[in-house]
Design a protein around this nucleic acid. Sequence first.
DNA 1: CCGCGTACCGGACCGTCGATCCGGTACGCG
DNA 2: CGCGTACCGGATCGACGGTCCGGTACGCGG
Lengths: 216, 216
Amino acid sequence: MAGESVWLRPRRQERQTLTLDRIVAEAVTLLDAEGEARLTMRRLAERLDTGSTTLYWHVKTKDDVLDLALDAVFGEVPLPGGPAGPGGGRARVSELVGAWRAALLRHPWSTGLLDRPMMGPNALSRTEFLYATLAEAGFAGPDLPAAAFSLSTYVTGSATMQARERDATAAALRDQLRARLATYPTLAAHGLDHHWDDTFARGLGYLLDGMASQVR
Amino acid sequence: MAGESVWLRPRRQERQTLTLDRIVAEAVTLLDAEGEARLTMRRLAERLDTGSTTLYWHVKTKDDVLDLALDAVFGEVPLPGGPAGPGGGRARVSELVGAWRAALLRHPWSTGLLDRPMMGPNALSRTEFLYATLAEAGFAGPDLPAAAFSLSTYVTGSATMQARERDATAAALRDQLRARLATYPTLAAHGLDHHWDDTFARGLGYLLDGMASQVR
DNA sequence: CCGCGTACCGGACCGTCGATCCGGTACGCG
DNA sequence: CGCGTACCGGATCGACGGTCCGGTACGCGG
């Protein structure tokens, strides 16, 4: 059994060496395509054209992959550049928050991972930016963490709620709810058909208005 | 092999028959004690003194158990009774929202399940109550779903964020963050030590203020 | 009092998962 | 040229969610 033919053996250079970055990137595309439930170390390894055990050289557990994938989503959120003009704090915050929400909704699985510590470098730098912008806008003392907390809470919560509603079974349940509008009259009359983008912006408006009146 | 001794055989009456309610209740206490990761159909069955397969007669999948457990948490939220006095809308909303948050934090695992459709009867009746209270307070048109959405988003998001912070690994990561306060100056200076209850109430104040100025 | 249907239960089992053991292989550096 | 180290993977482990199929006891009609 003298070694196989060269033609069958992949050339060393052509085959990219496995990298943590490649693993995370492939995990994100797999999650985008099939969701969290179908992300398996075996399937992920197969897509990377390697054995499942090899992944464990680069990563300690599957949770590591998920943590890294989540932080990769945060990495897609661009930080508004340049100095904020006077009174431009609101625009900058809206921009950051909107991009943040868009990134989460681009990867609906990410909202299911938001219950784990968001301590990746990308998440932290976005949070730092939010704190800095709010501090510059005049928030101080206990109002600073409260304002930052409210905004990030609102973003993650609303993305979770909206991603949940896109689920197929959620649509079926909503139809069933429509039939029980006797039991839930107000909800059925006003809560079923609304535009998410408008609803989100409106709620963000409430929050920013309330914050502005506090700092003024 | 003529049947075992009567003394060893449990009397029929003494042994409670297995009920969906008993399953859900036991699942909640198991989740409270050990978290979602350690909730297993086998372990749950063992606690109920039955075989794991028996559970599947009462329940179709494990997800059913989780859905029911989550709705059981919502069931712990009392609905403020009686008619709301004039201008009492804010107090009622604060009461509901506060109790809602308390229930979620009493069962920290629940925040990890918030990405699934909240379509259980308990969740729906709380949402209906919220809609009705807000409608009575003067919200109409697109402002009604926006207000209800903002509030429930704020509650679920903030509970998720706080429950996440109680995690043991989160504390370790926070210590590490404290060491890197050069990279995240504003965050490290203001975001690490704050009282959750005060921060939550302050943020809720922003939101309610902004909502009030809208409906006025 | 009998017998039988139905509501309920569980041992054995299947395929798959996350993770580990341990033996390889090839590249770079001395 | 040889050897260490960085990287890879077949085989395997224990546990999981879920199903098959054969039970068991209780109530109800005869």
